[in-house]
């Protein structure tokens, strides 16, 4: 379009029912009058030959560039329906693309989580409805507290596992690229962890509804799960990330197993324990805030 042809359109504008090349060149250059343009464009709508002729007058480099961008965008796609929905809710699309790389948001991972929960919850339900003899004494109320022990052990650990998969280097195959890139590691971590946390909490909370237990069980699992994950993240700023996740897991598993052995597994989600978890959550959040720049370093030792 920068090539402006100063000559007016010659008398031979139409040849054999098609636009002459001079006419098309002038049209491409933008020097044709409006009314002639209308008839040229009407003709182009139905004539492939003249369309190709017009293309020849357009800057080839510009067409090639748009072509490669188009094919690149077509290859990238616009994600699934979930992603489009979230985009419309106002979340910036690049964050969604980053989150998509998290292993704990993949269908395979989520299915495994659901599978484990199904087994554990199923076992508890079976004991409750006397389908299998759990050998647990039935506590006050209508639920077999002992049968809940596996669920109470496993639930928050599954949430921790989901979050661990979001921040542990061993789950990020291109970890070195993530470190060497300018995008804030802390921001990346936060986005991924929150996504993983949400994705993991949903099946666990649903499982807590399904499992025959006290009505407050779903809510009671929230604070311990959050506390575990925050503790693991805070510990990762002090020790090696993998060690941090293992320590966090152990800190939950040990009390849960001990209490289960003493036939009082529900103590782990009762008010005193909730308070303890809340304290851990707060302390970890503070440590995390103060030491968050450790994640930017990503030093490999």
């Amino acid at each position: 379009m920068t090539n402006r042809d100063p000559e007016p359109v010659g008398p031979v504008a139409w040849v054999d029912g098609h636009a002459s090349d001079g006419m098309l060149a002038s049209y491409a250059a933008g020097t044709v009058e409006t009314i002639e343009v209308w008839s040229v464009e009407a003709h182009l709508t139905g004539c492939g030959r003249c369309r190709s002729a017009v293309s020849a007058h357009v800057d080839a480099a510009r067409l090639a560039r748009n072509r490669s961008v188009l094919l690149s965008r077509a290859a990238l796609g616009d994600g699934g329906r979930v992603r489009r929905l979230l985009c419309r809710c106002g979340l910036p699309d690049y964050l969604l693309d980053l989150v998509a790389a998290t292993p704990s948001l993949r269908v395979s991972w989520l299915l495994s989580v659901v599978g484990v929960l199904a087994v554990v919850a199923g076992e508890a339900a079976a004991v409750r409805y006397h389908l299998i003899g759990g050998g647990y004494p039935v506590a006050a109320g209508y639920w077999p507290a002992g049968a809940l022990a596996p669920f109470l052990l496993v639930g928050p650990l599954l949430v921790l596992a989901g979050v661990a998969a979001a921040f542990l280097p061993m789950f990020d195959p291109a970890y070195q690229l993530t470190v060497a890139a300018p995008f804030s590691s802390v921001k990346l971590l936060l986005v991924r962890t929150i996504a993983a946390l949400t994705a993991a909490l949903v099946p666990v909370v649903i499982g807590a509804f399904v499992v025959p237990g006290p009505g407050w069980l779903p809510v009671a699992l929230l604070v311990p799960s959050l506390a575990l994950c925050t503790f693991a993240l805070a510990a990762a700023t002090v020790v090696d990330a993998r060690a941090a996740a293992v320590i966090a897991g152990t800190l939950w598993a040990l009390p849960a197993l001990l209490l289960a052995a003493n036939h009082v597994p529900l103590r782990i989600v009762q008010p005193s324990a909730q308070l303890a978890c809340a304290a851990v959550l707060l302390a970890s959040a503070v440590v995390l805030y103060l030491r968050h720049d450790r994640f930017e370093l990503g030093w490999m030792r």
Binding site: A28, E41, L44, R51, L63, L70
Partner: peptide, 29 residues
């Protein structure tokens, strides 16, 4: 087949080459 004439025709409606480029890409997308 079609990007050439589309580019020309859109340029007659809008003088910004960037906007026309975006429109062409978005059309085929």
């Amino acid at each position: 087949r079609h990007a050439g004439w589309l580019t020309v025709r859109l340029t007659r409606r809008c003088a910004s080459p960037d906007l026309v480029d975006h429109a062409v890409q978005d059309t085929f997308l």
